Amino acid sequence: MDHPSSPQGPSHPDDQDPGAPVRAGVPEHGRVPKYYAVKVRIDALIGELGESGPLPTERDLAERYGVARETVRQALRELLLEGKLRREGRGTVVAGPKVEQPLSMASYTEGVRKQGRRPGRRLIALDRIACPAPLAADIGLERGQPVWHMERVLLADDERVGLESTYVAVDRVPRLDRDFEPDSSFYAYLRDRLGVSFGGADERIETVLATPREALLIGTPPALPMLLIHRVSRDTAGRPLERVRSLYRGDRFSFTTHHGDGVRRGHD
């Protein structure tokens, strides 16, 4: 049986990554689960291997660290969920850095490009539907009026990282099915082709699990945590413009925001 152990790595807050757990995740009683000690050592190995580097097999890792394969398996599960590793074929490789998306009116395209990656989208559906009652108020319509529903898989360097559903009134973008390139930025289309600018938005973010269909489209296990953003956008005149449901892989995305210098720091 594996017993608690001390992980190899920094144990003092001043020695560790500021984004890491306090005391490197060591509980106050000082007893560390064996899998966590192995996880810390594999995490260090990840840094040595570099992006896309192949990880040794579970058997090799178990022999290297002198633990049971189930202990290694538990450590790998957490590293996969954290986005530090990814499955490739039958093996496991080191994942690249997460995409940082600003929580602002900047488009997905702009956010990914700032990370030095190539944005893309793959169209799943573009349908004209009758506006359902729950959606009508959000985009300033009456129930039953025509609405576009556009669903696209989000890509970063051809890697599937999310799924986006956009709802917009047909009378705002009547030629969406003819003029719009589905792999391009919807914001840029509105701005450059129609002269429509975004004036503001209300957003809500939560953690969810993908449905089986969503997991299949994004290419992830159903148990993988996702970051879900609901957004209702308005134009510069304050008129409702679109409602968007964006689902992002929790292991491949993080979100950033900026507060002005006048914002009070600290906690009550």
Rank of each mutant, 00 (worst) to 15 (best):
L80P: 00
G83C: 08
G83Y: 09
L85Y: 02
L85N: 02
R90I: 02
T92G: 01
V93A: 04
V93T: 08
V94M: 00
A95E: 01
A95I: 03
K98Q: 11
V99L: 10
P102G: 04
P102F: 03
S104W: 05
M105N: 12
M105I: 10
S107C: 06
S107K: 07
S107P: 01
S107E: 04
Y108G: 02
Y108R: 07
E110A: 14
R113F: 02
Q115W: 06
G116H: 11
G116W: 11
R117A: 13
R118Q: 15
P119H: 07
G120S: 09
G120E: 02
G120P: 10
R121M: 13
R121N: 08
R122I: 07
R122P: 00
L123D: 06
I124K: 08
D127L: 13
R128K: 14
I129N: 01
A130N: 13
P132M: 04
A133T: 14
L135R: 06
A136G: 08
A137N: 06
D138F: 05
D138V: 03
G140M: 05
E142D: 13
R143D: 10
Q145P: 00
P146Y: 11
W148G: 09
W148H: 09
W148M: 08
H149V: 13
M150Y: 01
M150N: 03
M150T: 11
E151H: 05
R152H: 11
D157N: 15
D157G: 12
D158S: 15
D158N: 15
D158E: 15
E159L: 14
E159N: 10
R160Q: 13
R160I: 12
R160Y: 10
G162Q: 12
T166M: 15
T166L: 15
